[in-house]
């Protein structure tokens, strides 16, 4: 509930977007030339240790998703959707897993090894690693 209340307080001004990872082994996972656009477009599919990247996103019409795509990927949600749909409906790839809320996103990232996603603020949690702290 707290997360939901918080995210409402922050609307509709320009929202902070923080890219987060599951904290286990996080330092070994990132390669130098990895970029977020490639990870979220599902083109870079494995971490440096060859584990599959578990990508989580919010629905296309979620304000945080729109902000994330614009601010961090320098793209628009419909461009990402085009890429994902092409792989989904030709069987040539798997799209990210969609969660319904920021609270669910946080839970998924905490409990899924090798995962990546985004939330709307910085928090103190030993299970969460912030992508830009590298």
């Amino acid at each position: 509930m707290l997360y939901i209340a918080l995210s409402f307080c922050m609307l509709p001004s320009v929202q902070a977007v923080e890219v987060i990872m599951n904290a286990s082994d996080s330092k070994e996972l990132i390669k130098e030339n990895m970029d977020l656009r490639s990870i979220f477009s599902m083109r870079t599919r494995y971490w440096a240790n060859n584990e599959k990247i578990r990508v989580f996103v919010l629905p296309d019409n979620h304000i945080l998703h729109k902000n994330f795509v614009k601010q961090k990927l320098h793209m628009f949600p419909h461009q990402l959707r085009r890429t994902w749909d092409r792989m989904t409906y030709t069987g040539t790839g798997q799209p990210p897993i969609t969660v319904d809320s920021v609270a669910e996103m946080l839970e998924k990232i905490k409990h899924t090894k090798y995962s990546i996603g985004y939330i709307d603020r910085r928090i103190e949690d030993e299970k969460i690693y912030f992508f830009d702290t590298q």
Binding site: Y46, N50, K52, T88, Y89, G91, T92, G93, Q94
Partner: peptide, 18 residues
């Protein structure tokens, strides 16, 4: 109406059907 399934068995092996 379409229904598909994809299965990533190994890093370099996957299956898909629709």
């Amino acid at each position: 109406i379409g229904l598909n399934m994809s299965y990533q068995a190994l890093n370099n092996l996957s299956f898909a059907a629709q």
